[in-house]
């Protein structure tokens, strides 16, 4: 049986489409943080996604929830980007679409590769202050006060906007779209699709060409596992389990689990 891996062995790129069409949990929290700021201070929210045309779904969702504008960066040449190239592409898009931004909010990590690297690298690329894994934040004029629990330290942090925050999944609870919101989003979706030249980048500055890392191989940890399946009567299974693996289990327990009775039952 050939298992379908979300990886193209010819080009060495992860096929993110399989995870696409679904907003990352952490990005939902980042959007929630943006919506709360909009409600208390007023704001214009631009949702930005990078990916195949299908990723537009995510922007519809963001608009339905209350974002004002969507930007989809979609260009074959952007495929295979590692975090360094991605942060460069996102920075170019932000400078094109919204050069006077006050705040960039990112999910602290994606569920597909979990690098958690794009946010901090984007802050570097834009040369603005940045903070990662933030649980709560409040904005007073241009001062952002944030809290986070990192490595067993509770921290209160401050920085001035324009700035970048990566939002953790433990502080904000994403809202669900109301139906009116959804209708609005579909009635007049303000979504712009942009390619490499639209954001003023040279094709050599995006995608795999601009990525110092290469994926040599992707393998499944589950596919080739020789796996013993036990089924049948529960009592029998449990006896078999201890007969076959009693030394392993007992070893971890620091006890001898030799059968003392019913050995042949």
């Amino acid at each position: 049986m050939v298992s379908e891996l979300p990886w193209d062995s010819k080009t060495g790129a992860l096929k993110r489409e399989l995870a696409e069409g679904m907003m990352n949990p952490a990005c939902k929290c980042a959007l929630e943080a943006a919506l709360q700021i909009k409600e208390t201070h007023g704001a214009h929210i631009t949702a930005v996604a990078m990916g195949p045309p299908m990723a537009e779904e995510v922007l519809y969702e963001a608009l339905a929830l209350g974002a004002d504008k969507g930007v989809l960066l979609s260009d074959r040449r952007m495929a295979g980007a590692d975090t360094l190239a991605t942060s460069q592409t996102l920075a170019a898009a932000i400078k094109t679409v919204s050069p006077d931004f006050d705040l960039i909010l990112c999910g602290c990590r994606t569920i597909d590769s979990e690098t958690a690297q794009v946010g901090p690298q984007l802050a570097e690329e834009l040369d603005i202050p940045g903070a990662a894994d933030i649980e709560t934040m409040t904005l007073k004029d241009d001062l952002l006060v944030m809290e986070r629990l990192l490595d067993d330290f509770f921290e209160v942090l401050e920085m001035r906007t324009p700035a970048l925050v990566t939002v953790s999944t433990s502080g904000y609870t994403p809202r669900y779209p109301f139906f009116t919101g959804i209708e609005d989003a579909f009635a007049k979706p303000d979504i712009t699709v942009m390619g490499t030249s639209d954001i003023g980048l040279n094709p050599d500055c995006v995608g795999m060409k601009a990525s110092p890392t290469r994926i040599l191989d992707v393998y499944s940890t589950t596919a080739n596992k020789t796996n013993v399946v036990l089924k049948g009567a529960v009592k029998r299974i449990v006896a078999d389990l201890f007969n076959a693996y009693g030394d392993k289990i007992g070893g971890a327990m620091g006890k001898d689990l030799q059968t003392h009775e019913h050995e042949s039952s």
Binding site: K225, V228, I237, V238, L241
Partner: peptide, 29 residues
């Protein structure tokens, strides 16, 4: 989770848990 396991036991989880408790009581002296 079953595909990831070294040993996959196809059964009711609660029953297996109870049976393991019984079996262990016998085996641990």
């Amino acid at each position: 989770m079953m595909k990831m396991a070294d040993v996959a036991v196809v059964a009711d989880a609660k029953q297996v848990c109870s049976a393991m408790i019984k079996e262990l009581r016998k085996r641990i002296r």
